[in-house]
Write a protein that binds this DNA or RNA. Structure first.
Lengths: 336, 336
DNA sequence: CAGTTATGTGAACACGTGTTCATAGCATTC
DNA sequence: GAATGCTATGAACACGTGTTCACATAACTG
């Protein structure tokens, strides 16, 4: 009953050393590849360590080797958004391939800036920030703490900050041209949260491309990047008697909501009565029953570029900041 | 050019102390609520710290206060699975409410056990394991390292391991009775990965409830818990001429895939020609166009219980292990 | 055999913090 | 006026590790 109830401490290298009858240094060396240590001794130590369930404390190790904690914070968008969820999955897996441990923040709308600043208490190897609007204020703190920052879905010019971003305007223009080529002339835009640059760029690209075709927008509407928001917006448009024959949606989730509303509330056929094009190319867009024409915001390429910039930045902390542009691609399916 | 290229070190408390003309102890006290420190002095220190961008190193702090690193590892399922994605989002947000930082692992099928063992190098406050099959081997290591483990979607009896699990058999039985009450007699089961206990329990519940109604399964099939898998399985069933009038699917994603296949490949009307019931109640199930009848595997309640068990375990590390059962609820919509 | 090199090894240091210890000043109480 | 209690403060310690330092032994080289 000596230790009852109390949380006993973690096994330490000193305890392993005592049990194996060696010095503590030897234990540390046993877990360090390439260190001078007698083979038999190393095996003895590893065996004892295994029995005791010893594992070097990563916190203490990270404290020792300054500048490499192997922790990387990811500030994600709302995971109800499928695009963010799929990106996160790829990102988490890829970071493990680099030996990094991802600390995940956000995942919901009310992401408090306080949380982001809080995680900076850890000596992070890097901070990956997906979209969002807190970038500017966070960047300042990152700079002071010498923590590299990688921005995805947004561009910012600051020392130590690298960016990966889709050419949103170009993607929007591709959608417009595809709709016009299909014979559509009364085109509408359904945007997302207006204060995000992704939405602004897609809208600008939409309007510019439309002007080049000698057309002007028939409708400019906004929702919240969600299926439900897209559904409600489309229902309101239909009820308001809006006359459109093509709609470009700022992301796929809203496009799917619009399709559901157009079919169920408006009795419309797609694409006969209304052409729809989305943005992102989430996995759901390819599902039979949706078959959504969309602009691919390539996730694999995005994650790949994030990792490339991350590695380069860790290699050369003082290098110039860089922006990796992701080329959009029009995926032709059945709704345009 | 003195420091060019080299990654300059993080600001430390000693540097703040020197800049503010106080002892290092005072700096530490300035960031500790309730410590004896002259008010003016504290304000001075905080001001200097702000200017220098100082932030106490959480690694060193965690090393100091043994037993509380505020790090919690989450081993999630594949995030392509919407249920896992939605659970993760809630979990991440809730853990922040407890002041914990979530380190996320997995998110893809090939979750290597090596990764899970690797994260145990950190002195975690706890490990949350969603579903999966690596539980047994991990539990042993957790026990040796005195790291509390919380299992979700799976039950295991071991000291220091708490579990949260839906009563899968009961949920399956509810689905069966709803189908029978609708007049269905030729019922099939579309399961997920067979070696997971969630699938086994749901199938057992299905068969038992069916037997109680004096019926036997018309079809027992398996897919991979994905939309695409459900679609393919349903197509094969239709091509094979299977005679069923009701299908219970082990999760919603497969149920949605089955619906798409039944409509597009088989030309069937739902629920007129075929009743379908899913499991989980992901947000998509409620979308117009799907309107899926399903057994709710309550996510809010699950996360809430995980947090309760976590708090209780941190409060009393030696307490008996506990299993929190989540009561399933039949959500009646339009597909049964 | 003398001289150089490669291999082992334990003691000691550094990482950056929170907290205890001892001491000192000051205000309050009897 | 002495005794007591509260506030404030810097030095010192502990946390658990990786690595350097000094030294010892063994293995080659000429």
């Amino acid at each position: 009953m000596q230790n009852s109830g109390r949380q006993s401490r973690r096994i330490t290298a000193a305890q392993v050393a005592e049990a194996a009858g060696v010095s503590r240094s030897a234990v540390s060396r046993a877990f360090t590849a390439g260190a001078y240590l007698d083979r038999a001794k190393r095996e003895k130590i590893l065996k004892v360590a295994q029995e005791l369930g010893y594992r070097p404390n990563a916190l203490a190790a990270g404290l020792q080797a300054a500048g490499r904690s192997d922790l990387v914070a990811i500030v994600t968008g709302d995971l109800v958004n499928h695009y963010d969820a799929e990106i996160l999955a790829r990102l988490v897996q890829s970071l493990r391939g680099l030996g990094k441990w991802p600390v995940v923040l956000g995942g919901h709308e009310d992401l408090r800036e306080e949380d982001v600043l809080g995680v900076l208490g850890y000596p992070l190897d890097a901070l990956v920030l997906r979209g969002g609007s807190v970038a500017e204020s966070v960047a300042l703190h990152c700079a002071k703490l010498n923590i590299p920052m990688i921005l995805s879905g947004r561009v910012m010019s600051a020392p130590g900050v690298d960016c990966v971003c889709c050419d949103n305007a170009r993607g929007a223009a591709m959608a417009v041209r595809a709709l016009v080529a299909r014979g559509r002339r009364k085109l509408g835009y359904l945007g997302g949260v207006p204060h995000l640059s992704s939405d602004q760029d897609r809208r600008t690209g939409f309007e510019t491309a439309l002007a080049e075709e000698g057309l002007s927008p028939a409708v400019l509407a906004h929702a919240d990047y969600s299926f439900e928001g897209g559904y409600a917006a489309a229902r309101d448009l239909l009820a308001g008697g809006a006359e459109i024959d093509g709609l470009f949606c700022a992301n796929d989730a809203m496009a799917l909501g619009v399709m559901a509303a157009a079919r169920q509330e408006g009795g419309l056929s797609i694409p006969e009565d209304l052409s729809i094009i989305g943005f992102d190319d989430i996995s759901m867009a390819a599902w039979p029953g949706f078959d959504l024409t969309t602009v691919r915001n390539d996730m694999d390429e995005t994650v790949s570029q994030i990792l490339r910039l991350l590695s380069a930045r860790l290699e050369a902390p003082g290098k110039d900041n860089e922006v990796a542009w992701i080329e959009p691609e029009l995926i032709l399916r059945g709704t345009h």
